[in-house]
């Protein structure tokens, strides 16, 4: 495990987490159904003409994060895939996501992430996740109300060690951008099958869920291993654009 990664190019490490369970499902959605959630200076990536991608990412964090004895906690992230910025000095990003909505059951986490990465993170004390035994799927609830059922459609995920790089945008304090690095045992696939369901909830910010056309890609981390997730916040996009122009 690389633990000395305190910077990438000029970007300094902002936050790092140890994750116990994690899945990320990407879904196809009609581009016009997601357009309102993409800031004007960004553009949603299309996998086919007229079809963009949103993602649901679920993370179950290890204990002791904020202080010794701090409980394990959960996060669910809703993002849309957008164009990356390949001028950033970093390994080529696997993909770039813009955060639409983030929820967690940990007030400390909501405060920390919102403060440092400018994510639109909100507290949902009743957030519950039931991960499947193979780690490939998860049922997400707010109390007893179902939100998303993410069903793994691969019968036997062959996990493998991987390092992934990506980028993110947030838009609660101007359009901000940053880098993420992910290291752990993972598997991804696009097998067809019963991938689950979405249920109305404020976390979806009014997105018309009936416009979701199916599951595009499923990514999963091997449960009960240590996944290392790091964020390197870069700041406002406009500042970087200015510095590129030599301003």
């Amino acid at each position: 495990m690389t633990t000395a990664l305190d910077h990438v190019g000029k970007a300094k490490l902002t936050l790092s987490w140890r994750v116990r369970k994690q899945v990320m499902f990407l879904y196809e959605i009609d581009s016009d159904a997601i357009a309102a959630h993409v800031p004007p200076s960004l553009e949603a990536m299309e996998v086919r003409p007229g079809v963009s991608l949103i993602a649901i990412e679920c993370l179950h964090y290890y204990s002791d994060h904020f202080r010794e004895g701090y409980r394990e906690f959960l996060e669910m992230v809703l993002t849309v895939a957008v164009q990356p910025d390949l001028s950033i000095d970093m390994p080529v990003p696997r993909f770039c996501m813009h955060a639409i909505s983030v929820i967690s059951d940990s007030p400390e986490f909501v405060e920390q992430e919102g403060h440092l990465l400018y994510t639109p993170t909100e507290l949902v004390p009743g957030l519950r996740m039931e991960f499947s035994e193979d780690g490939g799927g998860v049922d997400i609830y707010d109390g007893t109300t179902p939100m998303v059922m993410c069903r793994n459609t691969h019968p036997n995920p062959p996990y493998d060690h991987k390092v992934l790089w990506g980028q993110y945008y947030t838009n609660t304090n101007g359009l901000q951008q940053g880098i993420w690095r992910w290291e752990g045992q993972m598997f991804e696939h696009m097998k067809a099958g019963d991938w689950g369901s979405f249920h109305p909830h404020p976390v979806f910010k009014g997105i018309d869920l009936s416009r979701i056309r199916g599951c595009y890609r499923q990514m999963m981390a091997k449960p009960e291993t240590v996944t290392d997730v790091r964020f390197y916040h870069l700041g406002l996009v406009s500042d970087r654009a200015g510095s590129r122009r030599g301003e």
């Binding site: 200076s41 960004l42 553009e43 990536m45 957008v82 164009q83 990356p84 910025d85 390949l86 001028s87 390994p91 080529v92 990003p93 696997r94 993909f95 991987k162 390092v163 654009a241 590129r244």
Partner: peptide, 24 residues
């Protein structure tokens, strides 16, 4: 090598003004 993990889709676009997708 890290570049073995790269795939075609990773170079489809870049929002910067300098066509970094082509140079990368």
């Amino acid at each position: 090598p890290e570049y073995y993990d790269y795939t075609y889709d990773m170079f489809i676009a870049s929002i910067d003004g300098e066509q970094s997708e082509a140079s990368r």
